[in-house]
């Protein structure tokens, strides 16, 4: 029952964030860049449900646009890095021997490095922009997925139907594509969901440090940085983006946990 609850709560949180982000692409209550200095740091009102920021821009509109940026960068980065990592993991598992050894040692090496620090270095080296932040986050996801994919694939390679496939004349690539990938999809999807939570946090951190979204683009991390100077004057400026980050990270985390328990055959059998 517990996994059902986290699955539902996670899905609701993620759904809300994704919906807000999607809507922002077509419509926001106020134009995103509309500056109204006379009306800066306004209290919530009918016109501005969450008030305005230090430049008089509508806070709700900017939070919505921030959702679009944060979620798309995080999900895109995990998809890209996860895809490449999965490919490498499958390769390592299918070829074994020295190929596998070398790839896994490379992964170990990359894990010895704090991921966020590494992303900061990469983003700084590529130059500050949202795209480069995404690429940096994608990069740190490669070894994570390589390891998960290889571990899961190794368990599938020893199964009888793989032997039967080989006996039917199938090569490593065909077996990887048709038998390994479908059978490791579940753990990979769970991993991806959890890594998106981490990626949202990383994107926020990089944008907060000024390495991600550049003004006037809206991003939760960026909004936190802008609110910092006003913390004593207008604390809600920091609370809202902070809440959004928390909710999104929590949402993906719960969703990933729920999916994992749901996909775990041992739990399923115990329930049946």
């Amino acid at each position: 029952m517990r996994h059902r609850a986290s699955l539902i709560l996670g899905a609701v949180l993620v759904g809300l964030m994704a919906a807000a982000g999607l809507v922002s692409l077509a419509w926001t209550p106020w134009p995103l860049a509309e500056i109204d200095v006379l009306n800066k740091l306004a209290a919530p009102s009918a016109a501005h449900p969450l008030g305005t920021d230090g430049l008089g821009r509508d806070l709700l509109s900017r939070l919505m646009a921030g959702a679009a940026n944060s979620l798309s960068v995080a999900a895109g980065a995990v998809l890209l890095g996860g895809g490449i990592g999965t490919g490498l993991g499958l390769l390592a598992s299918a070829w074994g021997g020295r190929v596998e050894e070398a790839l896994m040692r490379l992964c170990d090496l990359s894990f010895a490095f704090p991921a966020l620090l590494f992303a900061i270095m990469l983003a700084a080296a590529f130059g500050p922009s949202l795209l480069n932040t995404g690429l940096a986050i994608a990069f740190i996801n490669v070894p994570i997925f390589a390891r998960v994919a290889r571990g899961a694939a190794n368990q599938v390679w020893v199964r009888d139907f793989v032997l039967a496939g080989r006996a039917a004349g199938r090569g490593r690539a065909a077996i990887s594509r048709d038998h390994i990938v479908p059978n490791i999809a579940a753990p990979l999807i769970v991993q991806a969901t959890i890594e998106i939570a981490t990626a949202i946090l990383a994107e926020a951190a990089l944008s907060y440090l000024g390495l991600g979204a550049q003004p006037p683009a809206a991003s939760w991390g960026r909004m936190l940085a802008e609110a910092q100077t006003l913390l004593w004057v207008a604390p809600m400026q920091a609370v809202w983006p902070g809440l959004c980050i928390t909710a999104a990270v929590l949402g993906f985390g719960l969703l990933g946990d729920g999916l994992r328990d749901w996909a775990d055959p041992r739990l399923v059998r115990r329930q049946a």
Binding site: R159, F161, D178, H179, P182, N183
Partner: peptide, 10 residues
């Protein structure tokens, strides 16, 4: 083992 020699997903 015919029970395990077929991919459950195919």
């Amino acid at each position: 083992e015919p029970m395990t020699a077929l991919d459950p997903l195919v």
